[in-house]
């Protein structure tokens, strides 16, 4: 298949331009084809690798699809009860203040059952990095409606679309924590195109560097797709996300440190 002229000569170690970092293990990811979790894991691992923090990092994994994160990232990981990752991360950071502590949570974990923990951890200004993957539904359990589900969006528990009169309004967690004095850097990104992946990686690197300053909580929301939960192909789901999710969850920095 790859028999074209000169191609074999290019594939040499000295010509390497990009490869998966070693902090990502060789285990096959359990995520569905096209899921944004894999990309988010990889860029987080790349930043940890580039900042040489592998031995200094403690992650807290949530309940949700990414509960198995310890299988894929070669750093120390603690699994927390549903929604309690910021509370566990607070304890870890206070006991070991020299470590870099991050939590990695989905929207069912962070914005539903863990709302109180998240808001209070951000309000106290704990020196942790919270990565919030927002795909608008409970992906692991079969696509039920989450607090972040858009108005009119179909899910398995709102088959006619979310009716805000009976089911309430969607919760913009990132906008809420941006108003709290404890947060230092709050941003919303996505990982569906190469440009957005690079931007998100830059945001994660900034947040990791801010963590060294001990100035407060860094909060990164990543708007992600859920092809299985949305009943779409991965490419369709990315397009739908651009057309429907981004107007409601606009990308960009919500709170940046004052220089």
């Amino acid at each position: 298949m790859i028999e074209a002229t000169g191609i074999k000569e290019i594939i040499k170690p000295e010509n390497l331009a990009y490869r998966k970092t070693d902090i990502m293990t060789d285990n096959i990811l359990s995520y569905c084809p096209g899921c944004g979790h894999g990309t988010a894991h990889r860029i987080l691992a790349e930043v940890i690798d580039e900042e040489e923090l592998q031995s200094q990092t403690i992650g807290v994994s949530p309940v949700g699809c990414s509960v198995m994160m310890y299988n894929y990232l070669d750093v120390d990981i603690q699994q927390a009860a549903h929604g309690r990752a910021p509370a566990v991360a607070t304890a870890i950071k206070r006991l070991m203040p020299e470590k870099f502590v991050f939590t990695y949570q989905g929207d069912g974990d962070l914005a539903a059952i863990g709302t109180a923990e998240t808001i209070h951890a951000c309000n106290r200004g704990e020196n942790i990095l919270i990565i919030f993957i927002n795909n608008g539904i409970y992906g692991m359990t079969g696509g039920q409606m989450a607090p972040t589900t858009l108005p009119g969006m179909k899910s398995s528990t709102s088959p006619f679309g979310r009716d805000v009169k009976t089911m309430g309004n969607p919760l913009k967690m990132t906008d809420i924590v941006a108003t709290l004095p404890g947060t230092y850097y709050v941003t919303r990104q996505s990982v569906h195109t190469p440009a957005n992946v690079r931007k998100t990686k830059k945001a994660i690197r900034k947040a990791v560097q801010y963590q060294k300053l001990d100035k407060g909580t860094c909060f990164i929301e990543i708007v992600a797709n859920c092809p299985s939960g949305w009943k779409m192909t991965p490419v369709q789901s990315n397009k739908w996300m651009e057309e429907t999710m981004f107007p409601f969850y606009p990308l960009g920095d919500l709170k940046t440190p004052e220089e």
């Binding site: 290019i10 594939i11 040499k12 010509n15 390497l16 331009a17 990009y18 490869r19 998966k20 990502m24 096959i28 990811l29 995520y31 084809p33 096209g34 899921c35 944004g36 979790h37 894999g38 990309t39 990889r42 990982v191 569906h192 195109t193 190469p194 992946v197 690079r198």
Partner: peptide, 11 residues
Amino acid sequence: MVCPDGVITVY
């Protein structure tokens, strides 16, 4: 960059 499973190596 966008491969969710990180299966692509580039030279």
